[in-house]
Each structure stands twice: as C-alpha cells, then as structure tokens.
C-alpha cells in the first residue's frame, strides 16, 4: 500500500485519487466542532491559529481519555459534514488535508479543487485499532474543551482511504455506483 507523510506537498496532493488506500505517517492535528468554532473566532479577530495550516492535515477526532501506560485512548473519525461550513476558510489559508467520515458539501469539494487538497476517511468506529497508530499525543490548545481540545498527534501508518481528491472525484459515489453496476451485471 502506498505510504505518504505529512506535511503534504502539492505534488503528493495532486497524485492522490479517490478510492485509493494509503498509510499516513507524521504529525497531524485533531480539531472538531468546538475547536473549529474557536479557529473561526481567531480568523475573524486576526489572531494566530494554534498551528500553521500550510501543508497540514486536520483529523476530525476526539479520542477517549488515555489510560495509564498508553499513548492515547480509542481514536477514530467523527462526522465531517458538521465542519463543512467552517472548512473553506481553512482551505483558503493552506490546509492540505482532512481526515473524517462521511461525505462533504459541494462547496467544500469545490474549494478543495480551487485550493488543491485531499479529504481522507478513516473507518468510523474502528477506534481501538486506530489507537495503535498513534505514537505521541500532546494537547496544544484549548484544554478546557476536553475531548475537543486541539491535539498534536504523531501517527505511523494510519490506514486511510482518499474520499474526495483535488479533482473533485468522490469515492462514495464512485464506490456505490461501481458496486451497483457489478451487481446489475451479475443479475443478468
């Protein structure tokens, strides 16, 4: 399986295609609903964001608490569409990738073409396995948000699927259509 590392450069982004399976390594940042709202406040007020967006990847995730002796609790993706309205502002400022589950709005997909970037999905609910890919965790902002704080993660070979690529192709539509076509043929 193809392996990629963060930060994502333009060449890597443009070489990824919807439906492709990859293993991602390097530093990524968790941010979900509440952290996105605060990032929008930062942007409105001209303040710095907790991390530089350029080339970086955001994981829409709020892990469960870390038990003694572990690096992280269980961790998997949350539903991405709740972040849709706040995503273009981040893509326009250099965000290169997002990890979540479920589909994205047309506006996000269009913005991903204008600002070449990739939307990956991790398998939702496979969070006990997800934890095994996290090698380091550090809360870097908004600790008061608990599970929703911004965390810097170092991941190794995190299994992902390219769900929407920088060309606007969508693995959900393509996957479902391919399956239905095959089934149609099988019935004949």
């Amino acid at each position: 399986m193809r392996e990629i590392t963060t930060p994502l450069d333009r060449e890597t982004i443009l070489s990824l295609h919807a439906g492709e399976h990859v293993l991602l390594s390097g530093v990524i940042y968790t941010a979900r609903d509440a952290a996105h709202l605060r990032m929008m406040d930062c942007i409105r007020q001209g303040q710095e964001l907790p991390f530089q967006l350029s080339g970086q990847v955001i994981y829409y995730a709020g892990p469960s608490p870390t038990p003694p002796g572990a690096v992280v609790g269980s961790i998997g993706p949350t539903t991405s569409m709740r972040m849709d309205a706040m995503t273009p502002a981040l893509l326009e400022r250099g965000l290169a990738g997002m990890i979540g589950k479920g589909g994205r709005s047309e506006e996000v997909c269009r913005c991903m073409q204008e600002n070449p970037s990739v939307y990956f999905v991790a398998v939702g609910g496979a969070a006990a396995l997800g934890a095994q890919c996290v090698k380091h965790l550090e809360v870097i902002a908004w600790d008061d948000l608990g599970p929703e704080s911004v965390k810097k993660l170092e991941v190794e070979k995190l299994p992902l699927i390219v769900a929407v690529d920088a060309y606007g192709a969508d693995a959900f539509q393509e996957g479902q259509n391919a399956y239905l076509r095959q089934r149609g043929e099988m019935k004949k």
Binding site: A61, G62, G73, S74, I75, G76, A126, A127, A128, A131
Partner: peptide, 15 residues
Amino acid sequence: NARVAREHAVPICQD
C-alpha cells in the same frame, strides 16, 4: 477492532 477492544479492555469506538 471489536476483538482488540475486548482483549485490551478499551472502548470499541472513541465516541
């Protein structure tokens, strides 16, 4: 994933 969660006594899903 379900097997690992049961064996390691960790949540199946983070939510």
